[in-house]
Design a binder for these strands. Structure first.
Lengths: 242, 242
DNA sequence: TAAATAGTGTCTCTCAGACAATATACG
DNA sequence: CGTATATTGTCTGAGAGACACTATTTA
């Protein structure tokens, strides 16, 4: 063992990390919010080749000196565009092949992230090339790389989460109403939900805190709630209708 | 646009893909099977530094010439050890940080895979360094890199799948009995299940084909089934007790 | 008052849990 | 027959779907 350790030292010293040809590696983030009754995704207009001028997901390369892990890389890249950390961040999947980048073999790990629109409104306005796009309009854009697929996959994942969790609530302000949350879930799922069912399961699982405040929307005022800390990781045992 | 295309050509020609320092990228596969009433995972004894001599998940680097995408890399690496393609292969997640590999910043995409023991028994015996390990024994091994964590995460994912799908059936031979499948799910979930509930939902969803054959295990013979093609992607709307 | 929005009552239906009962092998 | 394993019958309860109903605001 001791011998092996010494041997390993020598091996590491002689190891040239650029000696082998290997794929480009990056991270990309599909950051969503819910604003003006619409799902929106944050896009950045590319200033460099390849795909200069096209809209793309925020992302980039690992900084070997600064980043401790790939989550840190993703956070750094998102904060560059929004000035704040997203309320929710989860790995979606990794896409790697010969063709997705004209520079050659490349791999990207895509994240799904959620944030309240108000929390990053100022930050985004301070960044010239970043903009919230309504998801329905994004289909008509010619996005860079395979980012159209990444966005679709992220949205599909969020749709599933809407069926068995209240994770989408991270796309709302800290305080929100139940009709607001239901509207968001309906936008993700693509169909209307029974308000009784929607409310019953959230109440039963005791996921929200009633702040006591109300917000009026033209009719009876709705109660304002905020999430409990643990509610982001709660899953219902039974799905809503898919 | 035409101008931009020409400009992009020049950019690509001048691009040196080794110019930037970037992390090592690899894939690893947690390949499981169910044999002798035990969950087992395929491990490979490392012949090279780092961690020479330790047991590790099968995996390796992308071959930029041969592999079209990272799934192909993973398949190639698994087939090297088993001589056959696994019945089920799904991305688990990507692990990248400064410390997981002593050579420096490295990223690995881990897959969860399932195969029938009999389908690769010969192939594995032909590979000196590969071996099925019962999952309960793996906890006592000092595995290479962060592979203990990868295996735990893969197992946790399979446990979830056992609650809302019959994906674990890919770890069984093509023909299997319902008590066998239930035993496998119980091993994954870590508790006994109601056989009536287990069978009822599978029958209702019409997921299996009764082959007409039976297999005797000392008592009344059990019917042999095989999966329908689409059953691997079916999810129940309601989970079993977690 | 009417219109708009929020929230509740309650019936039905599906399906998992529990567990007793039956069926089919072997010796 | 007795034992072992497989398979079914059936009751109960949790919780989602449907939808009518009530409540609270503004105009």
């Amino acid at each position: 063992m001791q011998t092996d350790d010494l041997e390993e030292q020598g091996f590491l010293a002689g190891y040239d990390e650029k000696a082998y040809s290997r794929p480009l590696y990056s991270v990309d983030g599909a950051l969503f919010t819910f604003h003006e009754s619409m799902l929106k995704v944050l896009l950045v207009q590319r200033s460099n080749h390849p795909h200069r001028g096209k809209w793309a997901l925020p992302g980039g390369y690992v900084d070997l000196e600064i980043d401790t892990d790939i989550d840190a890389t993703m956070l750094r890249k998102l904060v560059e565009k929004t000035r704040v950390a997203p309320g929710y961040l989860e790995q979606l999947g990794t896409y790697g092949n010969q063709l997705r980048d004209p520079r050659g073999w490349s791999v990207t790990t895509c994240y799904t992230a959620l944030i309240a629109h108000q929390r990053c409104e100022k930050g985004i306005n301070a960044v010239a090339d970043a903009k919230w796009w309504p998801l329905d309009d994004v289909n008509r854009l010619d996005l860079a790389f395979d980012h159209a697929q990444l966005i679709n996959d992220a949205r599909e994942r969020l749709k599933q989460k809407a069926l068995y969790s209240i994770v989408p609530a991270f796309a709302l302000p800290e305080q929100f109403t139940l009709p607001e949350l239901q509207q968001l879930h309906e936008a993700l799922i693509g169909k209307t939900l029974q308000k009784k069912s929607f409310r019953r399961r959230i109440e039963q699982a005791d996921l929200l805190i009633d702040t006591g405040d109300k917000r009026s929307e033209g009719g009876r005022p709705a109660s304002l709630y905020r999430m409990k800390a643990e509610s982001g990781s709660f899953n219902f045992v039974r799905n809503l209708e898919g």
